[in-house]
Amino acid sequence: MRAKSGESALQSDERGFRPLLRKGHRFARDAADRPILMFEEVYKSYRAGAPVLRGMDLVIERGEFVYITGASGAGKSTLLRLLYRAETVDEGRILFMGRDIARLTDTSVPFLRRNIGTVFQQFKLVETWSVYENVAIALEVLGLPQRLIRSRVGEALERVGLAGRGECLARVLSGGEQQRVAIARAIVGEPALLLADEPTGNLDPQLALDILGLFEEINESGTTVLFATHDRSLLDVRTRRVIVLDEGKALDVPLGPPSEGELLELPH
């Protein structure tokens, strides 16, 4: 079960997920019944004549754990960047809980990002800050009271196995620990969606499996996880839905990673 808090600032309640919205914006009740993500004919290119995504269609339901895989340059990172609006689509729509991400104003983007946790290969921590500060900042941007922040950060650090390490500077931690801090920061605000862009890329195989296990635990608590990786060994760990990005399209493999032979047979 997702941890619930008595405070209303975060988004869980009996009816399910409620996104963090700007003041004056109302939450549409039927949004909870819609898929969490829908890509409709999405096109994206950085150079003319070389599109990364070519009319990609994809639906991701609430609570899913989905691997995004594909060769280098296939568009895994682009897909994730489109989701947290670091990029905008050239054509098509990406609906996050029914809302078109591309149509958000610049001032609304931070509110979108508060509903999406992000974890990267390079951790993206502030190395001169302590572990606690790195995690707490995700709640400070929401303007929560310090008392609540302290308890939520404590819970998050416990979830990622870093209880009692709050005072350590981020730069003195090992790579695996730094990634755990990044995960704690991503989940402390209880986002609806967790994006992981090659989160195990800098870790050794055993640590990579530990981190994958952590993402699975988070997913079990109800958070939708999109896990981008090109590491096939991770895909083989458990049968999960896999989205293979190939030639700018998403090839959906609902029951686990395809063998190389199956991949060749998939319709392009």
Partner: peptide, 10 residues
């Protein structure tokens, strides 16, 4: 960059 990612306003 981190602040932008976690949804900090301008």
């Amino acid at each position: 960059e981190v602040l932008r990612l976690i949804g900090a306003t301008d």
